[in-house]
Amino acid sequence: MLATPGTLPSAAVEDGWAFEVKQDGQRAVIYLPGDGTILVRARSGTDITSAYPELLPLAAVLGGRPAVLDGEIVALDEQGRSDFERLQQRMGLALSPAKAARVAARLPAHLMLFDVVHFDGRLLTGLPWAERRGLLEDLGLDGPAWSTPAAITGHGAEAWETVWAAGLEGLLCKRRDSRYIPGARSKSWLKVKVHRLADVVIGGWVPGRGRLTGLPGAVLVGERRDGQLHYAGSVGTGWSQAERTRLAELLHVAAIDTCPFAQVPPVTGARWVLPRLVGEVQYTSRTRAGRLRHPSWHRLRPDLAHDGLG
């Protein structure tokens, strides 16, 4: 079952909703046949069991009682937050168990469990979320490489403030009476992402194609530190056609021949501009190198226009 992008349920109805921290990892369904084995499948259906050897002991936790569990595999940073950039080093190792074991020793993964859809011979998908959640909590699945994170009922605004302050990705909001519908993207489950704002300097752009021929397909942006412009990523969404056309005019006027960034970005076909245009962008988080993740254009900031001279 998949969540639909949405907004936080209002205070008037929030008592009918539960709120969980949105994890930034790899969705997985865990099959425990009850015979001492375990099968972990990715959202695509691919068998990824061998990629996560630290989950193998979970096979024996429920004894002979078979179960199918739903959760998210994450890699945690020093503050205990899910870090997708770390997890990427673990993904794709299912075909190399020996390498997976070596990487796991220095970069452990953790399974965050949030649903149970089959247990002890009983299909649970027809039960409301609240009953399934109660059954999951009764299983007591908290171990060295797996846990059942908290879910709270109501208090959506407080939950939102908490994830914002902690630098987390967002919230999953689930109707307490919702049934589990495999494969469906349901409005009974909503994902609400935290979007942060940053002021960035445009240092280049990449021409668009097709209907965007002659217009910027993306702008290359940076942030000033120590008197230099450091590349922070490319932004290719968030404009209206009129805004993109206006930006194209400004970029052509500001054209220069040399790259204004401290290090040339690894972008093919880039065109450079005098770094004087400042824009405000939305983003979800940053990579370890300081790049913006999932950036989207918000607005031009002429009040912050830079002279481009350092």
Rank of each mutant, 00 (worst) to 15 (best):
L2D: 14
P5G: 11
L8G: 06
A12K: 15
A12N: 08
D15V: 06
D15Y: 02
G16R: 14
W17H: 13
E20V: 09
E20R: 10
D24K: 05
V29P: 05
G34I: 10
L39Q: 15
V40K: 01
R43Y: 14
G45E: 06
T46P: 08
D47F: 07
A51K: 03
Y52H: 08
P53R: 05
L55W: 03
L55P: 01
A59T: 00
A60H: 13
V61K: 02
G63Y: 02
L69P: 10
D70Y: 03
E72G: 10
E72V: 04
I73D: 02
A75C: 14
D77T: 09
G80D: 03
G80T: 05
R81A: 12
F84I: 07
F84C: 08
E85D: 03
Q88D: 04
Q88L: 12
R90C: 02
M91V: 08
M91I: 14
P97D: 02
A101E: 13
A104I: 01
R106K: 13
A109R: 01
D120F: 03
R122G: 00
L123T: 14
T125K: 02
E131M: 02
G134K: 08
L135Q: 09
E137G: 08
E137D: 12
D138V: 11
D142L: 01
S147H: 14
S147M: 13
T148L: 01
A150K: 06
T153N: 15
E158C: 03
E161W: 05
T162H: 07
A166F: 03
G170C: 02
R176G: 11
D177A: 15
A184V: 04
L190T: 09
K191P: 07
V192S: 01
K193Q: 09
V194S: 07
V201T: 15
G204R: 01
V206H: 01
R209A: 09
G210R: 02
L212Q: 13
A218G: 10
A218V: 07
V219P: 06
Q228H: 13
G233L: 10
S240H: 06
Q241H: 10
Q241V: 14
Q241L: 12
L247F: 00
A248C: 14
L250Q: 13
H252S: 14
V253H: 06
I256Q: 15
Q263M: 07
P265D: 11
G269V: 04
A270D: 07
V273Y: 00
P275Y: 09
P275Q: 13
E280Q: 12
E280R: 05
Y283E: 02
R291M: 12
R293K: 04
R299L: 09
R301T: 08
D303P: 00
H306D: 15
D307F: 11
D307K: 07
G308N: 09
G308P: 04
G308V: 06
